[in-house]
């Protein structure tokens, strides 16, 4: 949703448009309970102002607020990724009717979650804004209020860690890209 510079922010419309999306982003990084609390907080913070239309769309701005709130739960998020890593790997090898696809999907989730837990906070924010929010480098830079070059270097570092974690589980070889 583009908000023209000459218009005041219509918070009701912004809430209607983005609340579910922001809730989902937080729930995927922390938990549904945390999202129930924090998603509303994002819009309360937004209501206090700070949006600059000259810097682009309102969506990255909201994700930026959400990301900053998530960072207050840094330890909880790391615990979540570690737990997901363990359970996904375990499930991948526990089914009697184990298929190659199930093993690969479980192993992928486990390894990627483990890699996310090992990333530093800044790199994780960037890679998850790109992966879950679908943002461009410039939009991530706007969301986190950091330079474009910093986004590029953080993303490059995160990609390397993810590739390393994937190791021999190559989804292209397993035919997972449709």
């Amino acid at each position: 949703m583009n908000v023209p510079t000459h218009q005041a922010l219509d918070l009701d419309q912004i809430f209607d448009t983005y609340f579910t999306e922001i809730h989902r982003y937080i729930a995927r990084r922390l938990s549904r309970d945390d999202a129930d609390d924090l998603a509303g907080e994002v819009f309360l913070i937004a209501a206090e102002g700070g949006y600059e239309p000259s810097r682009g769309d309102v969506k990255p701005w909201l994700y930026g607020i959400a990301t900053k709130l998530i960072s207050r739960h840094h330890r909880g998020e790391v615990r979540r990724w570690r737990a997901l890593s363990r359970t996904a790997e375990r499930e991948a090898h526990s089914h009697e009717d184990t298929t190659l696809a199930r093993v690969t999907a479980g192993a992928l989730t486990g390894r990627l979650a483990g890699a996310l837990a090992g990333l530093n906070r800044g790199d994780r924010d960037v890679v998850l804004l790109v992966a879950l929010g679908g943002f461009t480098h410039q939009e991530v830079a706007t969301a986190l209020e950091i330079p474009y070059g910093t986004v590029a270097s953080r993303l490059s570092r995160a990609r390397k860690r993810l590739r390393l974690a994937l190791g021999d589980v190559n989804p292209l070889k397993e035919g997972h890209d449709g």
Binding site: H23, A35, L112, L162, R163, L166, P171, D177
Partner: peptide
């Protein structure tokens, strides 16, 4: 399919808020 797309697919999705 690159690491970012895989990552987006690997992270469990969540239902919409009540």
């Amino acid at each position: 399919m690159d690491e970012i797309t895989l990552l987006a697919q690997a992270i469990p999705d969540e239902p919409p808020p009540s």
